[in-house]
Design a protein around this nucleic acid. Structure first.
Lengths: 162, 162
DNA sequence: AATAAACCGACCGCCCTGGTAGGATTTAGC
DNA sequence: GCTAAATCCTACCAGGGCGGTCGGTTTATT
């Protein structure tokens, strides 16, 4: 429940685009069918990726979307950030201006904001793990197990446990 | 927006308890006043910490709460987990049983679930950063800047930027 | 007895999420 | 030029979770 479904859908969409030949436009309809996702909702998701400059598009018949850069050069923190907005573990990290009680950092400055220290570390952990993963890795991973379904499940299980 | 305010309030509460002498019960009222948080809501928050065995309580007049272990032995992943429930970056991580479309891991096992690889790494990053931070660290940090308010703000700002 | 506190469960308004609807615009192919 | 296929855009909506309140019960101290 940390990331919303926009992140899930968007990452899947990016992987799907990464599987296609570059410059060759893929229609949203094709992706929606392949992944079993609602087309109209995907439109909103891909709009964020486009505005962030991660994908490019061509309108009209035989139009579609493609990666604006090779998958090797796309770090996943860019993708998730485009989909979810700022990657922050706590509300006060993204809206410093709001004078909510949630973040006592500004108000009672007499005491160091210890929670902020904690959330800063968490934020670092998240961003680091996203930065060190490229889209190409995920594309490669998703394609590697297409031939052997049983093995694929086993490996995925181990990865989860680790 | 990754963690809810329960985490923020609960961590602050734990820090407050860590500042007190062990075994000496602190009333919720005192904490609520010190932190400017709603008492009735804090009750729900502290209940989670108690059920997780992180704090102990005494009822009646002059009752209150205290840490069940020294702050040095409390890793923050335990605290956050008690407050937020399972620490998972995506819904399908916590409810494997639900047959939602959100996680395609089970359904189309023919293809390796690449998003799961990503979320697993993120989860690892979060938990690691929480595990390597003890409550004692936060207590020490919060107390260090009490004397020099101006310096405290400056240091906190640097920590955020880093 | 009175007071101070932990404990418990029900309730409730607000906002965000996930999703739908309906259209406007652009392009390829005939 | 017409039609179909696609992107693009805006508004709308139901549901659920979150943050919070309230009233009351129980337990212990003084």
């Amino acid at each position: 429940m940390i990331f919303s479904s926009k992140a899930e859908y968007g990452v899947r969409l990016m992987i799907e685009l990464g599987r296609q030949a570059p410059e060759h436009p893929t229609s949203l309809k094709a992706i929606a069918d392949a992944e079993g996702l609602p087309l109209a909702y995907l439109e909103q998701v891909v709009a964020r990726l486009r505005r962030a400059g991660l994908v490019m598009s061509a309108r009209g018949a035989h139009g579609g979307y493609w990666l604006s850069r090779p998958a090797e050069e796309i770090q996943m923190d860019e993708v998730v950030q485009a989909l979810e907005g700022a990657i922050a573990p706590m509300e006060c990290f993204v809206h410093d201006h709001t004078e909510r009680v949630l973040c006592s950092h500004q108000p009672d400055a007499g005491r160091g904001c210890a929670t902020k220290l904690l959330w800063t570390r968490v934020q670092g952990g998240i961003i680091r793990s996203l930065q060190t993963t490229t889209l190409a890795e995920l594309v490669e991973f998703s394609g590697r197990h297409e031939v052997e379904p049983v093995v694929a499940v086993a490996i995925a299980g181990e990865t989860t446990a680790a």
